[in-house]
Write a protein that binds this DNA or RNA. Sequence first.
RNA 1: GUCCCCAUCGUCUAGGGGUUAGGACACCGCCCUUUCACGGCGGCGGCAGGGGUUCAAAUCCCCUUGGGGACGCCA
Length: 484
Amino acid sequence: MSVVRVRFAPSPTGLLHVGGARTALFNYLFARACGGTYILRIEDTDKERSTEESVQDLLKSLEWLGLSWDEGPGKGGDLGPYFQTERFDLYNDHIDKLLEAGSAYPCFCTPEDLERERADALKNGQTPKYSGRCRDLSKRDIQQKIDSGITPSIRFKIPLDGEIVFEDLIHGATRFDPSLMGDFVIKRSNGYPTYNFTCVVDDALMKITHVLRGDDHLSNTPKQIILYQALGFELPLFGHLSMILGEDGSRLSKRHGATSVEEFREKGYLPAALTNFLALLGWSPPDRETSENPELLTMEELISFFSLDRVSKTSAILNREKLDWMNGVYLRALSDEEIIELVPELKRSHFFKDDADMVHRYISATRDYYHFLGDVIARIDDFSLWVINKELLTPFKTSAHILLAENFLTLTAEKDSLSTNDAGGLFKELSKRTELKGKDLYHPIRYMLSGKEEGPELIHFLTVLPLKEIRSRIQNSLEFLRES
RNA sequence: GUCCCCAUCGUCUAGGGGUUAGGACACCGCCCUUUCACGGCGGCGGCAGGGGUUCAAAUCCCCUUGGGGACGCCA
């Protein structure tokens, strides 16, 4: 019998930011952890910046992360609609109530006036806040201005006395002096209601119990609280999550590299790695006995361990190296089938076309190198691209190494393929016959086979590539070694 | 400028009066592997500063400093 209802309420003005993703994640985890309901609401009241494309991007990113919502776009729900632009009747009703009660009033100031006042105040070191010029206009004045064709905005009347105190779920007791705030606009002159107002009406009507959102909303909270009170709504609990900052400690922005979930997806990150990493930015699991890395947590584990009292108050810098490491861990843990599914290029590669099993041999030979999805395909070149590397091979133009190559060919002549065991035995036998060992044995073989100094273990090389190809490379190298 | 929030290794964090201040990533070393990667083991490294309170302060209080946020007809 849980009554917890939380929501994530993004505005569709661009791609889903990692900060937003973390807010969504924490709401999701909290809801799942206590059997509550997680709601997605689209805050599209900014007529200029909201786009349908962004809505689709947002939904796509959220789905990709695995943060499915219980109520919202595509899901429905009893307390919809879940797009603010479809809720204007609701907002207007409540604005009328405030107007009737005298808690709100029409404002005829022009944006230019307001901007100038604001700039002046800032310049003179004063607090920029609305002067209240239209607060006490008479009925006649109001009518006159309306008659003259000005469409007013509607402002909410801030009570000038008292103090607003609330208990933040994360920060504890927090207090504000309302007299420091100016009367704020709740309905624009273009008829669109504003954030602070819609947010309150929607959270109340959607019966949200816990408002978990970014720290940047902390100073909006007192305004919203007065609105709740003026509207006669019951207050939800508020919890303000700290911000995510860029590497230099400033607000995360484009110049810090990828900041949107979509960008991370494109760069080859896995959703499970990203959610695990983001969960650790501002939250930590309780201490417990594990032989595993205590920070590697599946979504199920995150849900079972999650609680608000383990959310920290400090802002966090996104540590990309740790994310990269974590992504590698998740990627390497995938099955061959999952990897093949995620990397369609594997199926398309002509390298594997004659040998269906080779893709599996390839993956097991290379998986230790994977950090990003792109790394899976990148290793193919290590095997498929081959030219004689004369520079590497020249020092091995010795009778012993010619003997080595010759014996390699004779010892493999009767075989169709090599197992790991075969390869091990082969090296032993070659060592015996040539009296070469260590560096002198392994390096020349590597150079002959791959033409490179680095690469997967030699044994893998021998098992991944068709033996025919291997023999051909050795044969070609042998001819080079014999040239004087 | 005013108001609000925050302050433990380089980074993410645990710890909330008595701890050798714990873990993760990164870094360094060793091992595994004759490469690289993966993995294992070990190491380096921190309570922003100053005042209180207390037998005892990373922990509680105040100030300073630093960082962030808000002050919009953006959300």
